[in-house]
Write a protein that binds this DNA or RNA. Structure first.
Lengths: 131, 131
DNA sequence: CAGGATCCTAGTCGATACTG
DNA sequence: CAGTATCGACTAGGATCCTG
């Protein structure tokens, strides 16, 4: 089992390296299913929790909360609680949050330009490989 | 159960929309754990299967094969079989594959510039929230 | 050499129900 | 209103063994 253990350790070290790589770390953050949606929803201005839930329709409460917590933790949004009754919570992009919008746009631009080629490639592939 | 069914359908429609959105589709492709590694390995020139396995150390055979198949299917790499004994298979970036390198670089650039801010935000967060 | 097939586990995600 | 807690379904990913 020594070989197995050694492999496992190698893999973990490798994963650790990957996690430390800024590029991959950022990718894992922005490729989150809801990240982009929430950020672009907030790009137009601050929003309250339920308002976000309606705008980003499709997100369960759990996912919305989780995404917002992550965004707050990573410094992309601020969370402002107004302890009225009923309570009011506003989310707003930080400077960092606003700075990621251009990057998202360039990704989107690349996608719109080249995704058709990907689709074409897929069709050729499934054609030649049968079904 | 009608309400449940309706919600489920709404969610699936939403997911379908997301999948049709080029931006998210691209993100789901390039955020794959091994995609970037394989592409940048191939950026220096064609490589054989085992060669790739060594360069992208940490990938299991299964993942390597899976990633390569996806890359081939999506038109990012070509797979060339030379039926010698033993068999030889070369992988090489296509034009499309080469065109994604600049995008990866701009993502990496953003990451290297701003990830430190994310880390700082995380420290503040875990400090203030205890633990 | 370059994979395919199989099994298995750890984490992800959504639904549901409950709370300050 | 803005969440938290818990549960089950699902699946991605790795290990392992086998083949043309």
């Amino acid at each position: 089992m020594t070989a197995t253990a050694r492999r496992e350790q190698a893999r973990e070290e490798y994963n650790a390296n990957l996690r430390e790589c800024p590029g991959h770390e950022l990718l894992s953050v922005i490729s989150d299913k809801w990240f982009t949606l929430v950020v672009s929803a907030l790009a137009d201005g601050p929003m309250r929790y339920n308002e976000l839930g309606r705008t980003v329709a499709g997100a369960s409460q759990r996912m919305l909360t989780q995404t917002l917590r992550r965004l707050e933790r990573d410094g992309f949004v601020t969370r402002t609680v107004t302890p009225t009754v009923p309570i009011r919570v506003d989310y707003e992009l930080t400077d960092l949050g606003r700075q990621i919008v251009p990057l998202q746009r360039s990704i989107k631009a690349w996608a719109e330009q080249h995704i058709p080629e990907v689709h074409a490639a897929r069709e050729r592939y499934s054609e030649s490989e049968g079904e």
